[in-house]
C-alpha cells in the first residue's frame, strides 16, 4: 500500500543524505521523495511516498523521528490529501502526429511548454496516477525523455504541520 509521509526538517547540508541513507540501509521501499524549502527558510519540507504494509510504514516513521534533524513528521491520511506531481515529457512528433498529441494534451489538462519541428515538451501537474495515464497515452508516440518531481502533498482542510 502506498502511503505519504510529510516531514519538516532542518534546512542544512547532509539532511537529505541522512534520510535517504536510512531508507537504503533499513530496506524500506521508497516510491518518491521530494524536498523543498518552506516559508521558514530554516525549515525544509520532505514528502516521501513509501510502498509497504503498516509495520513497515510505522518503522519508517519511527526511524525518521530518531534523526535529530527531523522536526516533525506525519503520515498523511489517504484520500484526504491534495497531492500533486510535476512531470515534463519530451515526445518526438511529425507534422502528422502533432495534432494527435495536442488532443491528448488538451484532454488531460496538460500543456505544451516547448515546441520544435521534431519535438513537443509537455508539462503536466496532477496526481501520480493521472501522470501515469498521460504516459500511457503518449506511449504510441516516441517518448524521448521523462522527468518527474516526485509527489508533494498537503492534508485537506484546516490541519497543518508547522514547527
Amino acid at each position: 500500500m502506498k502511503q505519504t509521509i510529510s516531514i519538516l526538517v532542518e534546512n542544512h547540508a547532509g539532511v537529505l543524505s541522512r534520510i535517504s541513507g536510512l531508507f537504503a540501509r533499513r530496506g524500506f521501499n521508497i516510491d518518491s521523495l521530494a524536498v523543498g524549502i518552506t516559508d521558514d527558510p530554516t525549515v525544509s519540507r520532505v514528502t516521501i511516498v513509501v510502498n509497504g504494509d503498516d509495520y513497515m510504514v510505522e518503522q519508517v516513521e519511527k526511524q525518521l523521528n530518531k534523526l535529530i534533524d527531523v522536526i516533525k513528521l506525519r503520515r498523511l491520511p489517504a484520500g484526504d490529501t491534495v497531492s500533486r506531481e510535476l512531470m515534463l515529457v519530451k515526445v518526438a512528433c511529425s507534422p502528422k502526429t502533432r495534432s494527435e498529441i495536442m488532443d491528448i494534451v488538451r484532454v488531460m489538462d496538460a500543456r505544451v511548454s516547448d515546441i520544435s519541428c521534431e519535438t513537443l515538451t509537455i508539462e503536466h501537474s496532477d496526481t501520480a496516477d493521472r501522470l501515469e495515464i498521460l504516459c500511457e497515452l503518449l506511449k504510441p508516440y516516441q517518448v524521448l525523455e521523462i522527468v518527474r518531481t516526485g509527489t508533494i502533498a498537503l492534508e485537506k482542510g484546516g490541519s497543518v504541520i508547522r514547527v
Binding site: Y55, E58, Q59, K62, Q63, N65, K66
Partner: peptide, 8 residues
C-alpha cells in the same frame, strides 16, 4: 526509551 525499538 526509544519508541522505534517497541514493535520492531
Amino acid at each position: 526509551i526509544d519508541p522505534a525499538e517497541i514493535g520492531k
